[in-house]
Amino acid sequence: MYGCKAWTISKQIQNKLEATDMWFLRRMPRIPWIAKKTNERVLNEANKRRSLVRTIRKRQATFLGHVMRRGKLEYLVITGKFEGKRSRGRKREKIMDGLARKSIRYTGRRQR
């Protein structure tokens, strides 16, 4: 998760991260893939919740708070406020788009 504060997480990448999280949880108790256990059953057995994407989003939100207060080059890069014309094609996804799409509030309470 080194450098995850600057990752742009699309829906595809989020699905891959969640699959990786489940892979980690299956590897720790050495559950083989032929056991045919559902993800919910593995989570219940481990007494865990999916937390990898949540942790990344939390780190991004705290990093974003630091960057937005400074107002320097990092602020321009994250908000995408550059002068001039933009290139052709679909707009590139920014960190702000990913955080706004999920709109997770981190108040220290459990998410339901």
Rank of each mutant, 00 (worst) to 15 (best):
M1F: 05
M1G: 05
M1R: 04
Y2H: 00
G3K: 01
G3Y: 02
C4A: 07
C4P: 03
A6F: 06
W7G: 02
I9C: 00
K11W: 04
K11M: 02
Q14K: 07
L17Q: 01
L17P: 10
E18Q: 15
E18D: 11
A19T: 15
T20M: 12
T20I: 13
D21E: 14
M22P: 05
M22Q: 04
M22T: 04
W23Y: 15
F24T: 09
F24E: 05
L25H: 14
R26E: 02
R26G: 00
R27F: 09
R27H: 07
M28P: 00
M28W: 14
M28C: 07
R30S: 00
I31E: 03
P32L: 03
W33P: 11
W33A: 12
I34P: 09
I34N: 07
A35I: 07
A35L: 13
K37I: 11
N39F: 01
E40D: 08
E45F: 03
E45I: 09
E45V: 05
A46I: 03
R49G: 03
R50A: 11
V53T: 01
T55I: 09
T55S: 13
R57T: 03
R57G: 10
R57V: 08
R59Y: 11
R59I: 04
R59A: 15
Q60G: 05
Q60M: 08
Q60L: 12
T62V: 13
F63S: 10
F63C: 06
L64K: 04
G65T: 07
G65F: 07
M68N: 08
R69T: 06
R69P: 05
R70Q: 12
R70D: 11
L73N: 10
E74A: 13
Y75Q: 01
L76G: 15
V77T: 14
T79F: 02
T79P: 00
G80V: 13
G80H: 04
K85Q: 00
S87R: 15
R88A: 11
R88H: 13
G89I: 01
R90E: 10
K91D: 11
R92E: 01
K94N: 06
K94D: 06
M96V: 09
G98I: 03
R101W: 14
R101K: 08
I104V: 03
R105G: 02
R105M: 12
T107M: 01
T107S: 04
G108V: 02
G108F: 05
R109I: 05
R109L: 02
R110S: 10
R112F: 13
